[in-house]
Structure formats: C-alpha cells, structure tokens
C-alpha cells in the first residue's frame, strides 16, 4: 500500500463510484423517458379516439360523410385529401429536388456549393404560418387568375380541371406543399448522393461516359434506395404539414376529383375543428383523425429510415 502525502491510497472501490452510478442512471432515465413518452403518446391517442372507434368501428376510415349535426363522422374525405395533396406535392417537387440535389452533390463548384445549400436550408426554416400567409395573399390570387382560369378554359373537360376555379383549394395546397418539401427533399438526397463512393463514378467515367451518364447510370442507381427513402421522408413531411395547408385548402370535407375544389386533410381538419368541437363524439372523431395521421407518418418514416440506413450501412461495409 503506497503512502503519498501522508494519506493512504487504496485500490478498493471508493464511495465516489456512486456518482458514476447516479449519473449513468440519470442519463439512462432521460433516454427511457423518450420511450415512455412515445408509449404515452400512443396511449393518449388511442384513449382519445376510443369513443369514435367503438361507435363507428373500422367504418370510421371509409365513411364519406362528416356531419356534426347528424353525429356521423368519417375519416375518408380527410384521408383522401391528405393522400392526394401530399402525393401530388411530391410528384411536383420530387424531380426538381432530385435534379437540384444532383447539382449540389455532383456539379456545383466547391466555392459556390455551401452558399446555395445554405439558402436552400433557410427555405426549410421559414415557419409554416408564414408560408400560409404568403400562400393566401400571393400564391392564391396568382393561382386563381392566370393559372386556374387558363386550365379551366382550355382543359375544362378533364375532371381534374372541370370546376369553378376558386383559388383556394386542393391545387393551391399542393403548390405550397411542393415548395415546403422541396428544401427537405433536396438536402436528404444531396447527402445520400455525396455518400456514393468515388470508385463508382470513376468506373463509369473510365468506360467513356459523359458527366451526366456517369451521374445517371452509376451515381443515382447506387444511391437509389436512399433517394427513395429521402422522398418518403419528404412525403411524411407533406402528410403532417398543418398550418399552410389549413390556410389554403379550403377546409371542406368533400371528396372531389377536381383540383380546384376545396378539400380537407387530416391535419387541417383537426386544426380547424378541434377548438370549436363540443360533443365528445366530435372530439373523439378528431382524435381518430390524429391517430390515422400518426399511423400514416409512422409507416412512411419507418420505411424511409430503413432505406436511408441501408445505404449508409452498405457504404460502411464497402469501406
């Protein structure tokens, strides 16, 4: 046993190690809190939606009417509106997002790339209500007059453009959603493309491929599942987006094939009616919409994360 400075120094465990245990326990319980929170979230949603689910059963999901007066509530119009608006938004935003991501990851000169990426990321940090305000006052008038009016006059015999243009409605909601998911889809795809190992590019270049052929035939296919994952994440964003859509979609529980007509999404219906609903069944039905929304985003995000992770892990194995 060594004696330094007159004090005995022992090698046995001292009581100070309790500090380690406590600290570890604190960190662990904070992590566990997250698990608890998720379970609580699911419980509260189920609990809130229980009345509606037990009253209507699974028909709740397919019922087309939403009528507080006759106390019949069906989620179908909102589910339809959610699916249509977010898929269309992704169809509009997806291709330019992929191209812009290719530009940032593969083509943009190094000195320029950080500033462009930064600007695009700023686009993602503008609050949803601000997009809503801009949509209401700038986008909707522009939509109504030149764009929708033109479509109505020239393509009015198609069901998608065959009703009176109002400005507010599905089409404007799609437009604002497309703008809002754009930066997100760009930055995820850009990161995935950047992770493609350089030997893939070189292999294609050495075969005598042009720049675009190298990107399109080697880089993009390699990143394929990651890009799809990124687009699914963007779709999840669009599905959950609330404020801007609530302000632009017109808020009517209708299922219409016309893009100009007002509609609802799950989130906008909750946002719009929750505060003013009085009957317990109405509140519970809105909770049911929330549960459906949660389930859809869970599915999309779960699938997307798996795809993005797979690309990451695949790369790690290659290295």
């Amino acid at each position: 046993m060594a004696v330094v400075d007159g004090t005995e120094r022992e090698l046995t465990r001292s009581r100070i190690r309790i500090g380690d245990r406590l600290f570890r326990f604190w960190a662990w319980s904070m992590a566990a809190l997250l698990l608890g929170l998720m379970l609580l979230l699911i419980y509260e949603l189920l609990d809130g939606a229980w009345l509606a689910l037990s009253t209507f059963g699974l028909e709740f999901l397919t019922e087309r009417s939403w009528n507080p007066v006759s106390a019949r509530y069906g989620a179908w119009p909102a589910i339809y509106g959610t699916v249509v608006s977010s898929l269309l938004a992704l169809a509009v935003a997806g291709p330019p997002a992929l191209l812009a991501a290719i530009f940032l990851a593969e083509i943009c000169p190094r000195w320029l790339e950080p500033s462009v990426s930064f600007l695009i990321e700023l686009l993602a940090s503008i609050p949803s209500v601000v997009y809503g305000l801009w949509g209401l006052q700038v986008l909707v008038p522009a939509m109504r007059d030149p764009i929708q009016q033109w479509l109505y006059t020239h393509l009015g015999n198609l069901p998608a453009f065959g009703c009176q243009p109002l400005g507010i409605g599905m089409m404007s909601a799609v437009a604002i959603l497309a703008i809002m998911v754009l930066p997100f889809a760009i930055s995820v795809s850009r990161d995935v493309l950047r992770a493609v190992p350089n030997d893939q590019r070189e292999a294609m270049l050495a075969l005598g491929a042009t720049r675009w052929e190298t990107i399109w035939r080697a880089v993009v296919p390699f990143a394929r599942s990651g890009i799809i994952g990124g687009l699914l994440l963007a779709l999840g964003r669009a599905v959950g987006e609330t404020m801007a859509v609530t302000m632009l979609i017109g808020n009517r529980p209708d299922v219409s094939s016309c893009l100009f007509s007002p509609a609802y999404t799950l989130s906008s219906q909750i946002a719009n009616e929750f505060a003013e609903s009085v009957s317990p069944l109405h509140v519970s039905s809105l909770m049911g919409l929330g549960l459906a929304l949660f389930a859809i985003t869970l599915l999309l995000n779960g699938g997307a994360r798996l795809l993005v992770w797979r690309v990451d892990r695949g790369n790690r194995r290659r290295r």
């Binding site: 809130g48 964003r237 909750i270 929330g290 929304l293 949660f294 869970l298 995000n301």
Partner: peptide, 19 residues
C-alpha cells in the same frame, strides 16, 4: 424513437398534449 418522434406531425403532438 428519436427519428420517429421527429417525424410525428406537430398537430398530433398538439392533440396529445391537449389530452
């Protein structure tokens, strides 16, 4: 779970806390 939570729509968080 952290990934999943970041994907939960904000309105769902809203009604969860309401409840």
């Amino acid at each position: 779970l952290a990934d999943v939570l970041s994907g939960v729509p904000s309105i769902v968080i809203g009604i969860f806390v309401y409840n």
